[in-house]
Structure formats: C-alpha cells, structure tokens
Amino acid sequence: MVTTVSESFFETLTPSQDLHSLEDFALDISGANDAKVPYKGYGLLDLSIPSLESDTITVPVLVVPDTSYSSTVPVIVGTNVIRHFSTIDAQENIPSCWQQAFTAVSFVQSVPVKAFNHKPFTIQPMQTCTVTGMVRNVGDMTVGVTETSDSAHFLNICPREVHVRPGNTFSKVPVRICNLSVRPVVIYPKSVLCNLKEVEVVGHIDLSDGVHSKSHNQDKTLKDLGITVPSDTLSPLECSKVKTFLNGWKHIFSTGVTDLGCSSTVEHEIELDDPTPFKEPYRRIPPGSYEEVREHIKDMLEAGAIRESNSPFSFNVVLVRKKDGSLRFCIDFRRLNNGTIKDAYALPRIDETIDSLVGSKYFSK
C-alpha cells in the first residue's frame, strides 16, 4: 500500500522535490474501499524515522490534492514503509504508535489468492485489468485487503477492500493487477496472484473532498438552464421555495450534449469467461464522414467523455444518423457482450413500481 503526501506539504519540502507525472501509466488509483484517489503525480523522497534510529531509504510517494483531512494529516505512511522498518533489529524505546503498526503488519491473518481462470491469459505492458481470484479457508476473516505476495512479486497489485464470508472453505475475490513493466505478463490457472490480509475498517475518508467545485452553472439563471417554475399551479411561497431549492443544485444541470457530469461512487467492472484480449478487424468509414467523425471525436475528448487508450481490446465504431440528421457515435460491443459473465439480477416488477406511486402529487422525469 502506497505512501501519500498532500500537495501543499510536498511543496514545502526542502530542498524542493521534482513532481513526476503518472500519465504515461494511465492509472486509475483507488482506495481500499474502491473510492477514486485523485493524484497530482509522484515523487521520490528520502525517508528516515529519527525515533527508530534507522537509515534513510528512498521511497516513491503519491502526491494527492489538498483536502480538509490532509490539512491535519498531510502524510499517510503506507505498509511498504512500515514493513521495511519492521525488519530492522530490535531497538529499545520504540514509540507505541510504531510498535502498534509493526504488530499489525506482522501478526495479521494472510491467505494466498490464486487465479481462477481456466486458460492462461496475458496482461500487456502498461495495462490494468481486474481478474477473479479464489481463496480457501479464510477462517474468521470478514474484510481483507489484496496486497502483493512475495511469491508473485513481479505482479503489481492495486490494494482494495474485499469482503468474504467467514467460515467459507472457498470464496471468489476480485484482484486488480497493473503491469508496469515493458514485457507482457502471463497469468496461469491456479497461480498465486497476491495475498488477502485481514483488516479492520475503522472509517472511510472522503479523498475527493475539496477537489470538485460546485461553481458549475452558478453564473446562469434558471431560465438559462431551460427551467421554468409553473406559477399557475404553485403559490408564491411554493414558487420561492422551489426556486431556492433549484438554485442550490444548478451545478448538476447539463447545458448541452458535451456538458457531462461524472460520478465515482460505483466503478463498473466487466468480467469475461475468457479474459484473453481480442481485436475486431477495422471497418471502413465512408470518406464523406471523415471530417464529421474527427470533429465528433474532438468534442468528446474536450468534454472528457472519452480518452486515448492503449488497451489490447479493440471494437469498431458504428455511425448512426439521428432523425435530425446529426451523428450518433456508437461502438459495436456485441462480441464483448457475448463473452461477458451475466449478472443474474431480477428486474423489478412493473406493477410494484406503479403501486409505489400511489399518493404522489409531483412526478419528474
């Protein structure tokens, strides 16, 4: 688990340190609870613990934006640092906080996670993917974190919080693997991917606090946003209350097709019965549509709807004309859908949905 420092703390270091970019890796960094961790880059810092009388070590640290939490806790020491210092010779007068940390990483329950795939598959350089692993005999463990295993040190494991049922002899767990090397990595069936180490969740930190602004649309009126409050069906007091409420949420309204929002509450994952990457052969686009397609791609890139990708998967573009003559940009995911492990989720009954509307006065769409 990585060590993080806040951006303002990083800038106060003497001598000043270089901030390196992570864009080349195209990483989506998440916390153990799968919450997205925004980052500015990383730095290589020389670290020593005076109270432990230890030598200086050079470790990579992730530089994250300032939040209300980082104003009081600017540095979070990861287990990569704690484990290093726990291996030093026994010393006297070790601070209780460090002794507690050493104990936590030394005597925690740990079980190996093995690959659940039936065929070998390859993770290409600079590729990140989620694979299904299996664990056996978790004992009383209910919550664990996936971490790199000594027997599979060549795999870069993204730590994440995993829930398992205690007492089960067999459980499936998702494992996020990032190949930061320049060579492909082959995952063989039943090979060790990582370790699942027991943890106790004491709370969650909102790492995006203060990063996203609510200033969007604040300079626009409700009329500019296309919102009208019906004064013929509402009293003046009700109209005032509705307008006050809507003005407080103007930042969530879209003002155009490229004015898109983003939510990181849930991360969608696609599990395949065969995770081997595949590419669709290129389909010809009509020459008369080249310029229109370029403009459409440019608009989507500027809006943040898409990004450049080096994924080993490739799917064809399907161009469809809308009724108004504008272009609908679609992707042919049929082959991906055919290989997706289906989620047996029962759709709600329409009669129950209609019954739930009984007694309601206002409806929105």
Rank of each mutant, 00 (worst) to 15 (best):
T4G: 00
S6V: 09
L13G: 12
T14K: 15
Q17L: 12
Q17I: 11
D18L: 10
E23K: 14
D24W: 06
G31K: 01
V37W: 04
P38R: 11
G43W: 03
G43K: 01
L52G: 02
V59K: 03
V64P: 01
P74L: 08
V75I: 15
I76D: 04
G78F: 00
T79K: 01
N80Q: 10
A90P: 00
Q91Y: 07
N93K: 11
Q100K: 09
A104P: 02
S110Q: 13
A115N: 06
F121R: 04
Q124S: 13
P125N: 10
T128Q: 15
T130E: 14
G133R: 02
V138L: 04
D140T: 15
D150H: 07
A152S: 15
C158R: 01
H163L: 12
V164G: 01
R165K: 14
N168W: 09
F170H: 10
K172V: 13
R176K: 15
C178A: 13
S181V: 10
P184H: 08
V185A: 03
Y188H: 12
K190A: 15
H204M: 09
D206F: 02
K214A: 08
Q218S: 14
K220E: 05
T221V: 06
I227S: 02
T228R: 05
T228C: 07
L237C: 07
S240M: 12
V242L: 14
V242W: 04
F245S: 13
G256M: 06
G256R: 05
C262T: 09
V266S: 10
E267T: 12
H268I: 09
H268M: 12
L272D: 03
P275D: 06
P275K: 06
T276W: 04
E280I: 02
R284F: 08
S289P: 03
Y290N: 09
I297L: 13
L301F: 14
R307D: 13
L319M: 08
C330W: 01
D332Y: 05
N337G: 07
Y345G: 06
A346C: 11
P348D: 07
